[in-house]
Design a protein around this nucleic acid. Sequence first.
RNA 1: GUGGCCAUGGUGUAGUUGGUUAGCACGGCAGUCUGUGGAACUGCCAGCGAGGGUUCAAAUCCCUCUGGUCACCCCA
Length: 436
Amino acid sequence: MASEKELTQKTRKQSFQTPRGMKDILAEDWLYYDFILQNAKKIFEFYGFKRIETPLLEEAELFTKGVGKKTEIVGKEMYLLKTKGEQGFLALRPEGTAPIVRAYIEKGMFNLPQPIKLYYFGSFFRHEKPQAGRYRQFYQFGAEIIGEDDIASEVKIIMLSKIFLESLGFAKKDIFLLLNSIGCSKCRAVYIRELKKYYRKNNKQICSDCRRRIQENPLRVLDCKNEKCYPVKEGAPFILDYLCTECNNHFKSLLEYLEYLNIPYILDKTLVRGLDYYTRTVFEFCLDDEKSKISLGGGGRYDKLAEIIGRVKKPGVGVAFGVERLMEEMIQRGKGFKSAKPEVFLVYIGEAAKKMSFKILEQFRKEKILIGENLEKNNLRAQLKNADRLGVKYVFMLGQQEVLDEMIILKDMNSGLQELIPLDKIIPEIKKRLNK
RNA sequence: GUGGCCAUGGUGUAGUUGGUUAGCACGGCAGUCUGUGGAACUGCCAGCGAGGGUUCAAAUCCCUCUGGUCACCCCA
């Protein structure tokens, strides 16, 4: 825990801003977040997925064990918290799969009919340098199918991911699915030995990063973007040629299903993912087949994760999308949203009318008619100005005289024409005019 | 974590051989006009990202920090 002195030291500042890489989500942004979540919800729930939300904090060890100590997101980018009473550290969750598998085990979901289909929507945290489409707190939508090793799980996840992307307005032809298999622990071990041997032989022709990678995280040399490494990469052995019979059959069969279902894919022999728990199938969705393009989302199979974190032998498949990335692409493709604006506005003059305005507004709201008001202002001019700025079609005007007569003025803002209407007729009258 | 570029009211900006009180537009609030909007006019609000240094004098030059942005690393 920080001491009181440490906590107050910085408060001498004159102003505050959001921490680096984090942002306030304002009304215009919520239109996108809501739209994305609603589509995801509609589709995935219809296909039998249930929503789950795990805590923002987990024991740090869940990630070091599950995702891998040497991965960037756990080894270097995890937010760690030390608070009173816990041994060890808590971590702000850097990804969603390990917590969900933890919940699956902790809540004994393996006793339910398998597989378990879950989806989630929430924020995740990675302490990295912010950049386009990359924040320190960001939202992910993701889905997991846990409990079966049949390729049906992969097929479902991939199929639904595509339907989801299309629902957001992305054209079929723009969505690219990159696909690869990185085998199981057995065949990958054989492959890595070969890969290391090959890179050691070509040690002089590769970049310094790759020299480090081949030791720490060998698979990653395959997506090195340094030109220097291209010739060596070209001749490198690829894991697809080293898959054991089971992994090979699994992958072949997945490809057959995708072809049968008319889901185009690009076999990307260099696609490997940064999280240690992946086995066999890995995939990524982008909007451009250029490799440099930031991916919208990705996922894969993780057959050993449950075993590593909870000694439960259950396989799984999952996908996760970066919500901010989806948003940015939607904006770039001109998919705009407007918030609902009222078409009617109520203005008042005088104290009696002000009081009565509250009752009248409720009549509209009971009828689900969106009505604007600015009761805080007490001059007519300012109220009308606001109504005008909102672009409403009709304004109801209530004054001293109207209250006495139980009438109200209805003003057409386009023509400027006004007429007197009995107070008890306002709802049918406005419905007629708005064709409701 | 490494490197490049950047930082003036709420928003968009003017302002460098350092030199009056930092200018303009939009915006917000109020008024001209306590019963009529879209126009006009008037007044007000609000800024040199933070800290330090050089100097008689700093928005301007230097350093540190913070933040933004882009590339790398990595990833959603």
